[in-house]
């Protein structure tokens, strides 16, 4: 397993450099004046300065590789410019919005993976009968409804009509408590902070606000994981070792849940990386619709306001995040499959 992870870690720098080059080449598509804002740390730097002087000072007309060198050394120190739309540096904006996104993303991941796998196993066991067809049609429909349409309809029904699941992260009374001096923000994950402060009203309120966005962001990936699990299970259930297990007198549900599922999860884990990719994209829409002040909403707002440093820096951060998540996926892959672990 060590050598496997080391090997993964070795390509990491290549991908990292590649991603920075990709983002940098997008920066270079902008003119020198538009590019300027990605280099400053404070709008005060722009005051009382001749812009042309600043452009020369920052070397924005130099050959691209010199600019890349300067830019990347800034990025390495966390300097990604000033975000007009957030009113802070891109890094600060990103860090302050990270907890909301992480809370939503992590909460979505669990039901997606567990629910999707269970449904997929269910469909494969009922292969070709009524429930298999129903779950298949539902999956294709789930796969076809755009997240933003689904989210808007959720809002319309569950907030507008029923009043159950309000948007944003907390009600205003709860927000007041969270921002008050008596409440310690350990993590800025409101559920966890609520538990740590033993304030269960906050926990309840945070959960209530998360239900609709979690469902919205999950629906697509539920369908996805379910379909992958199903076809993987169908493939595995035909393997020789399943027949061996049956020939030993193993009970059918042990055959399915012990012998088949663990093997069937291997391809599911490989596509989990692709799912996380989409899940991160889905955050943009879900956070925008449900007014959750996270990274996704930040990206969408920045894009609307042509806040170049924020979108570029945000993209870079999302790229890093994804690489990190993929590393976790690789590790869990090794845990499930001894052929990789013992390599």
């Amino acid at each position: 397993m060590i050598s496997y992870i080391v090997r993964r870690l070795l390509i990491l720098p290549i991908i990292l450099i590649g991603v920075t080059l990709l983002v940098f080449s997008m920066i270079m598509m902008l003119g020198p004046y538009e590019r300027l804002s990605t280099y400053i740390k404070d709008p005060a730097e722009l005051k009382n300065v001749d812009v042309d002087v600043l452009v020369t000072k920052l070397g924005l007309n130099d050959p691209w590789y010199e600019q890349y060198g300067r830019w990347i050394s800034g990025v390495a120190r966390g300097d990604m410019g000033w975000s007009e739309s957030a009113g802070s540096t891109v890094t600060q904006a990103f860090l302050s919005r990270f907890p909301a996104t992480a809370e939503l993303g992590l909460l979505a991941l669990l039901p997606v993976v567990v629910g999707g796998v269970i449904l997929g196993v269910f469909a494969s066991v009922h292969h070709n009968d009524f429930w298999d067809h129903v779950s298949r049609v539902l999956a294709i429909i789930g796969w076809s409804v755009p997240t933003f349409v689904f989210g808007l309809i959720m809002l319309m029904i569950f907030y507008g009509t029923l009043g159950w699941f309000p948007p944003s992260r907390l009600d205003s009374w709860a927000l007041d408590i969270v921002n008050s001096a008596g409440f310690i923000n350990y993590t800025n994950f409101f559920i966890i902070d609520g538990l740590l402060n033993a304030n269960f009203a906050i926990v309840g309120n945070a959960i209530r606000h998360l239900v609709a966005p979690v469902i919205t962001i999950s629906i697509l990936w539920w369908a996805f994981i379910m379909r992958i699990t199903r076809s993987s299970m169908l493939e595995i259930l035909r393997r020789d070792y399943i027949r061996t297990a049956r020939a030993k007198g193993v009970k059918e549900n042990v055959v399915v849940y012990k012998h088949a599922v663990r093997n069937a999860l291997i391809p599911v884990v490989t596509v989990a990386g692709r799912m996380v990719l989409g899940l991160l994209g889905g955050l943009v829409i879900t956070e925008t619709i449900f007014n959750i002040k996270g990274l996704g909403q930040f990206m969408a707002q920045a894009a609307q306001q042509l806040d170049y440093p924020a979108v570029l820096g945000g993209t870079l951060y999302f790229g890093f995040l994804l690489i990190l998540i993929n590393l976790c996926v690789d590790v869990s892959y090794a845990i499930i499959d001894p052929r990789i672990r013992l390599e």
């Binding site: 991908i15 590649g18 990709l22 990719l277 991160l280 943009v284 990206m299 894009a303 979108v311 993209t315």
Partner: peptide, 22 residues
């Protein structure tokens, strides 16, 4: 490896940043 790099950015995020710039 180039393919990997393009896939290292979430698709929707990449689409947003590219459209913003263009």
């Amino acid at each position: 490896r180039i393919t990997d790099i393009f896939m290292a950015i979430p698709f929707l995020i990449a689409a947003i940043v590219m459209t913003t710039i263009l």
